[in-house]
């Protein structure tokens, strides 16, 4: 088998050649796929994960076609489910690993037993919840309420609220990242917060 992804379009070189994984970068790409269906970010993710998935799957199936099927299936799940990834619940690598392991498990069952019952997502739910006490559950509920309110914001404001509060980027970082003047970031954030206050106030009444 031959692979030479380094020659391919984008410059993922530094990520591919080191032993250390750049976790914030992976999260960022996943987020770009989730929020803007960014194909470039997906290509980066693909170049990082696909060859490794292919190798691991080949180890399990001893068959190139099936190894490729695992890559295809896993990566298309990443594309379709990126918005379900929650960086606060675990690393991007853990999430992609879970997707890959589940795809592999269902495929093995299909090959061995001719069963297409896709049990894996019940056995290993994707958003693996960490141990939580009641307090965490409360927080979680509040978060999901907050999230649904945030989703009602205009796209431009949503982006900034999410970047600032969920990904903990600074206003300066956001300005660079979104290629906008710092003042715009600040005013959008202020506007968004004012709206959220009204909405959450309403909901809490």
């Amino acid at each position: 088998m031959q692979t030479n992804l380094l020659s391919n379009v984008t410059s993922a070189k530094s990520t591919l050649m080191t032993d250390k994984i750049d976790h914030p970068q992976l999260c960022q790409w996943l987020d770009d796929v989730a929020t803007t269906r960014d194909k470039k970010a997906f290509t980066q993710l693909f170049q990082f994960f696909a060859p490794k998935i292919q190798r691991i799957a080949y180890g399990k199936f001893q068959n190139e076609t099936q190894a490729c099927e695992v890559v295809q299936e896993t990566m298309s799940n990443v594309w379709r489910k990126a918005h379900l990834f929650d960086a606060s619940k675990g690393a991007a690598t853990t999430w992609v690993y879970t997707v890959m392991r589940n795809v592999t498990f269902d495929m093995l069952r299909k090959i061995k037993g001719n069963r297409e019952d896709n049990l894996s997502d019940d056995i290993w739910p994707l958003a693996e919840q960490s141990i939580s006490n009641e307090e965490c559950f409360d927080d979680h509920l509040e978060n999901s309420q907050l999230l649904s309110v945030i989703d009602t914001l205009p796209e431009a404001q949503k982006q900034i609220v999410k970047g600032f509060y969920f990904m903990e980027m600074s206003q300066e970082q956001l300005a660079t990242h979104l290629n906008l003047p710092l003042g715009t970031i600040k005013s959008r954030l202020r506007l968004a917060l004012a709206k959220l206050k009204v909405q959450l106030g309403d909901n809490n009444d």
Binding site: F48, F49, I56, T93, T94
Partner: peptide, 13 residues
Amino acid sequence: TEQVAENSFEETF
């Protein structure tokens, strides 16, 4: 799971 995932994806291929 976190550890296995890390190991699976960190090796240079």
